[in-house]
């Protein structure tokens, strides 16, 4: 499977703050990839770099092009929906369709109108008169009517109620994704997209801390609900994270064979949310250890 996104050593600083610290990222064509990270981790900067909205250093190729050189050419192949309502608020719905029809060679106006017909969005309304949910529906209708190879979504459902959020992802899967197109989604609401993902990327403090296919997740990661008398044995296997739920101890392991864990309790595959917390804690502990080590050497 070839990559639609290839990034190597991406660096970006805002003054003294290093937003990206050598990000390496390869996303295969046809993947639905989740870019997950806490606030300020570098998700939006990474996504903006992919579509040429942010000048970064390093190797970068998206859909065979360098986004820094020819953003407008790349945008014939890539679409983008951001977390905030970015549609121009002064435009009317039909003026928006007129605009995209005139400037985008791959836009199918009939298809967008067909999508809009199934919503409550009036074509003559100004965008500022629509609710946030309607604005997202409208943007999605526009994007789904564009024949692109890559769709980049930056917190697309932030601030929407559950009905709109569910409808958004249903439409994305049923009407946009065809197995050939690639979707990159950054979101906080990991649980909602977990079932859609084929690829998972965790980013923290400007560094990629996990980059894996979902199918590899259950091979590499396990969660052990440990029997209380086997706690010491389980801890000896080096869990990356421990938590207590309803009086039971849950330990998350990385690259530990399940055969070793099974005698110690119930072994399950961690959810993306639990794995995310585990990796963020591991990252923090490693960071603190490194800092202590450095301080010790001084």
């Amino acid at each position: 499977m070839t990559s639609i996104v290839h990034a190597k050593g991406l660096e970006k600083s805002f003054g003294r703050f290093r937003a990206l610290k050598g990000v390496d990222l390869d996303i295969p064509r046809g993947a639905i990839s989740g870019l997950i990270g806490p606030n300020g981790a570098g998700k939006t900067t990474t996504l903006k770099a992919l579509i040429g909205l942010c000048d970064v250093q390093g190797e970068l190729e998206v859909a065979g092009q360098d986004p820094r050189r020819a953003r407008h050419k790349l945008m014939e192949e890539v679409c983008f929906i951001a977390d905030v309502g970015i549609l121009p608020r002064w435009l009317r719905v039909n003026q928006l369709l007129d605009y995209v029809a005139a400037v985008h060679p791959r836009f199918d106006r009939g298809r967008a109108e067909q999508f809009l017909a199934s919503t409550d969005i009036p074509p003559n309304k100004r965008i500022k008169e629509l609710s946030k949910g309607m604005i997202t529906q409208l943007h999605l209708a526009v994007v789904m009517a564009i024949d692109v190879r890559l769709l980049v979504l930056d917190e697309p459902t932030l601030g929407l109620d559950i009905v709109y959020r569910k409808e958004f992802y249903d439409r994305l899967l049923n009407d946009f994704y065809d197995g050939d197109r690639t979707i990159i989604i950054s979101t906080h609401q990991v649980e909602e997209i977990e079932a859609l993902l084929s690829h998972l990327v965790f980013i923290n403090k400007g560094e990629i801390v996990l980059n894996t296919q979902m199918s590899e997740l259950e091979i590499r990661y396990s969660e052990l609900i440990v029997q209380s008398d086997k706690m010491a044995e389980a801890e000896a296997l080096g869990p990356i994270y421990q938590r207590k739920t309803l009086g039971k101890h849950c330990l998350t392991f990385e690259d530990v064979p399940r055969e070793k864990l099974q005698p110690l309790g119930e072994v399950i595959t961690p959810s993306v949310a639990d794995l995310f917390v585990a990796k963020m804690r591991q990252d923090r502990v490693l960071g603190e250890a490194a800092a202590t080590g450095e301080a010790g050497h001084e």
């Binding site: 953003r71 407008h72 945008m75 951001a82 905030v84 970015i86 549609l87 060679p105």
Partner: peptide, 20 residues
């Protein structure tokens, strides 16, 4: 104004160069 209301992200998501 485009930057103030964030619509610059939408305009930039279209295949139109900044020069144009």
């Amino acid at each position: 104004q485009d930057r103030k209301d964030s619509s610059v992200l939408f305009w930039h998501s279209m295949p139109v160069s900044d020069l144009r």
